[in-house]
Design a protein around this nucleic acid. Structure first.
Length: 670
DNA sequence: CAGTGAGCGAGCTTCCGCTTGACTT
């Protein structure tokens, strides 16, 4: 009997099905060796020697591995073909060879879990790639040094219990800088001018609803272009001139536009879609995906790869041809390349295991919804492009005066749906930009005269950039190469548990603690907080993996300037004050101070501004304006769970136990 | 269903990435 070791129990189950009775397959459940939690675990003076110790939670796994390996002639280490996977393989080997010398330990890798790929791997074993293990060591040591040096600095200079790290601190920075950008934003007025015109073939006296809705009325709306309109005075002048103008078609451009399908899901894009389409948190999407994965319905859900196995492509193409017909099948399969440089392709994209399975009868509704989405996205990615016919009509407005205006209408019509057959809700409407209705654009000819019906100036204001939500934050992190598929959801939790940011209707805003921590870190550690820091690190790690660089040298180069800064800031850095928000009420106890909102370990609370001289505190009640739907008496207030997640409860608790994750509607908004 | 903050200085907090499961508001 031979032993095969992988990370996840699900992968183990699949492999043992392929390999049969002669193989025992075991799962490590992730890393089994790591740096100790309670101390630095890096011997800086001794070439940064890491003190990898067995993970406490995995003691039973380790015992089991030792036991089973003794009964095996050959051990195959089949963890993922990437940095972390290679380290897991190395750690398993270390643990198995600590008591005795094993005769044969092989490392095998495969990029898709099929019988053929696994058998191929077993017949071509290799040794553990020491360089790749070194790259993981370098990554791990760097993260430990950054995290365990900066965090204590925050305890000393800001507040106890805080944390900093290569990933979380840059994530916080993104949110803080967005907030500052919004604060600094000055809204500017501008105007859009629309003219409604009609062809002379038709006589239109009045814009009745019937005229608007009739596609054949010859009425359409054009928008003024090539002209900035900054205020009402300018708009009025232009409107007056447009009213006196003659109109004719100056240009008609028609062309075909193809819209190709999106690539199959990765963790990141799947989380974004879960948020956009279902309004789910990253956690909820990942939990649903985990269940689908465990039930054998989808491929692994933590991935950054667009790869699709050959077999899956063949099956998908058969299914598309059979179900939708030849026209929906492109001549050759579509392959998608990743845009990110730091991608580590250990897995396939997230796709259905069997694209022919419609997913009917999946237990829970989240699972069903997500499966359907994953399946459609996957099938669509192998279908033909959608084809639109686009038309752009330019209209000339002219008088005897030299001033002329150009106005434009443009629209797209779907001529062939292609992959959009599976995403019909996303079809773009045929629309000409306008304020008074939707019109189909008529077939007009160049130089054809037009009759003006009305001119509509619309006042608009430029808007500040939107704050991050979970989806846009994950997208940004992925773009910057920060974090991994397995950590996107946890990162979002961490910065909230630390009270650095809070979510308001799904939108991230920094708290005063978040501002204070970020400003302290950015000021004192500008290089390490740079958005490019991780990307540079990845470049170094790649060089370590190829053997061009040594991990110790790389860490040394980082440690020199970093530790110097830590030393200086520890000695000279001033303690940071966390801003408080004034409530506008005098303290009822001392009458001298003013009440302010502070953020403590358990969230917001109200206290006196002259603390510690006055120790008065009050509960912070955040009313939503709604009455309790159960007892109809108490107010619905915002509360926080142990994990610092917002939920809504009745102010009469514990008399009334009503609680909900979702904000109830207020009485006036039904 | 009470606690939080500062500073005192007993002993403690903290990182990222790999994995699953046990709880719930």
């Amino acid at each position: 009997m031979d032993l095969v070791v992988v990370e996840s129990p699900t992968k183990a189950k699949t492999l043992s099905r392929f390999l049969g009775k002669d193989f025992e397959v075991m799962a490590t459940m992730g890393h089994i060796k790591d740096l100790p939690k309670s101390k630095l675990g890096v011997d800086i003076k001794n070439n940064f020697k890491p003190d990898y110790v067995p993970v406490a939670k995995r003691e039973d796994v380790i015992e089991n591995l030792k036991l089973k390996s003794k009964k095996s002639k050959v051990v195959y280490l089949a963890s993922d073909p990437d940095r972390e996977g290679e380290a897991i393989a190395q750690h398993v080997k270390e643990i198995l060879t600590v008591d005795r010398s094993l005769s044969t330990v092989h490392r095998i890798t495969f990029h898709e879990i099929t019988k053929e790929a696994v058998e191929e791997a077993i017949t071509n074993p290799r040794d553990i790639d020491k360089n790749l293990v070194d790259a993981q060591t370098g990554r791990r040591v760097l993260d430990r040094l950054v995290g365990y040096e900066l965090s204590p600095l925050l305890w000393k200079k800001v507040r106890r219990g805080l944390s900093a790290g290569r990933v979380q601190s840059v994530t916080l920075r993104l949110i803080v800088e967005k907030e500052r950008e919004i604060e600094a934003f000055k809204t500017e007025e501008f105007w859009e001018v629309f003219a409604t015109v009609h062809r002379l073939l038709f006589t239109v006296k009045q814009l009745t609803p019937e005229v608007k809705s009739a596609n054949t009325s010859g009425v359409f709306v054009v928008e003024l272009i090539k002209q900035e309109v900054k205020n009402k005075k300018q708009a009025d002048e232009i409107v007056a001139e447009l009213k006196k103008s003659n109109y004719k078609v100056s240009d008609v451009k028609k062309r075909e536009v193809t819209k190709s399908s999106y690539p199959p899901f990765t963790t990141s894009t799947m989380s974004q879609a879960g948020a956009r389409i279902f309004g789910w948190s990253a956690k909820r999407t990942m939990r649903a995906a985990q269940e689908l994965y465990e039930e054998g319905l989808i491929t692994y859900h933590r991935t950054d790869s667009f790869n699709i196995s050959q077999a899956a492509i063949v099956k998908a193409r058969e299914f598309i041809k059979k179900t939708y017909g030849e026209r929906y099948l492109p001549e050759s399969p579509k392959y998608y390349k990743t845009t990110s440089k730091v991608v580590q392709e250990a897995h396939e994209a997230v796709r259905p295991v069997d694209a022919g399975n419609s997913g009917q009868g999946i237990g829970n509704s989240d699972g069903q919804k997500l499966y359907d989405l994953i399946r459609r996205r996957f099938l669509a990615c192998q279908m033909s492009s959608a084809i639109y016919s686009e038309i752009v009509i330019d209209v000339d407005a002219y008088t005897l005066l030299p001033t002329r205006y150009t106005l434009r209408a443009s629209g797209q019509t779907l001529v062939f749906d292609g992959w959009r057959k599976l995403f019909p809700g996303f079809t773009r409407e045929v629309k000409s930009a306008n304020t008074s209705g939707v019109f189909l654009l008529p077939e007009v000819k160049v130089n054809e005269p037009l009759q003006l019906i009305e001119v509509n100036p619309v006042q608009k204001f430029t808007e500040p950039p939107p704050r991050f939500n979970e989806a846009s934050l994950i997208k940004m992190l992925e773009k910057l190469g920060i974090g991994r598929p397995s950590t996107y959801a946890p990162i979002i939790s961490t910065i909230q548990i630390r009270n650095y940011v809070e979510q308001d209707e799904g939108i991230f805003k920094p708290t005063p603690i978040g501002f204070a921590v970020n400003d302290f870190l950015v000021k004192n550690f500008p290089e390490e907080l740079e958005y490019q820091f991780t990307a540079q690190m990845e470049g170094d790690l790649d060089n370590i993996a190829t053997g061009e660089k040594k991990w110790v040298e790389t860490i040394k180069k980082f440690w020199g300037p970093f530790s110097k800064k830590v030393k200086i800031v520890t000695k000279e850095g001033k303690r940071v004050k966390i801003e408080t928000e004034k409530l506008g009420r005098k303290c009822p106890e001392c009458k001298g101070g003013e009440l302010v909102i502070r953020i403590g370990r358990f969230g917001k609370f109200i206290s006196c501004s002259i603390f510690p001289d006055c120790k008065h505190t009050e509960k912070y009640l955040e009313k939503t304006g709604a009455k309790c739907p159960e007892c109809k008496d108490g107010d619905v207030i915002v509360k926080r769970s142990g994990r610092n997640r917002k939920f809504f409860g009745c102010s009469r608790y514990p008399d009334c136990k009503w609680a909900s994750w979702r904000k109830p509607l207020t009485d006036n908004k039904i």
